[in-house]
Amino acid sequence: MPTKEARRAPADKYDERRNQLAESALQTLGELGYARTSLREIANNSAFSHGVVHYYFSDKLELIIYCVRYYKARCVTRYDAVVAESTTPEELLDAFAAKLVETVQEEAAMHRLWYDLRTQSMFEEKLREAVLMIDATLEDMIWRIVTRYAELSGRPTSMTPHAAYGVLDGLFQQALLGHLTGSADAVDAMAAQVHALMPLMLAPAVDAAGG
Rank of each mutant, 00 (worst) to 15 (best):
L171W: 04
I145M: 11
F123C: 02
S153A: 07
S183A: 15
V146S: 00
R144K: 07
R148S: 05
E139D: 11
L152G: 00
F172D: 00
L177C: 03
M141F: 01
A186I: 04
L171S: 02
T147H: 00
D169Q: 12
Q120W: 12
T157I: 09
L177Y: 04
V146D: 01
V146T: 07
T137I: 07
E125C: 06
T137M: 10
R155E: 10
E124G: 05
F123I: 03
I145K: 01
G166N: 04
G166M: 04
R155S: 05
G178I: 01
A186E: 00
T181D: 10
E151V: 06
T181Q: 15
G170S: 08
Q174H: 08
E139H: 02
A130K: 02
D140T: 11
G170Y: 03
D140E: 15
A130S: 14
V131D: 01
A163V: 00
T157G: 04
D169S: 15
Y149V: 11
M159P: 00
R128Q: 09
L180N: 13
T137V: 13
A186W: 04
F123S: 08
A150S: 09
A175L: 03
E139M: 14
S121N: 06
L138Y: 11
A130Q: 08
W143K: 12
P156Y: 08
T157H: 10
T157Y: 02
F123A: 06
L176C: 10
E151Y: 04
A136D: 13
A184Y: 04
E125I: 01
E139S: 06
D185I: 09
W143I: 10
L171I: 11
T147W: 00
A164V: 09
A136S: 15
T147A: 05
L177W: 02
A164E: 03
A186L: 06
Y165A: 13
V146E: 00
V131I: 12
S158R: 15
K126Y: 12
V167F: 03
T181Y: 14
A186F: 03
S153T: 09
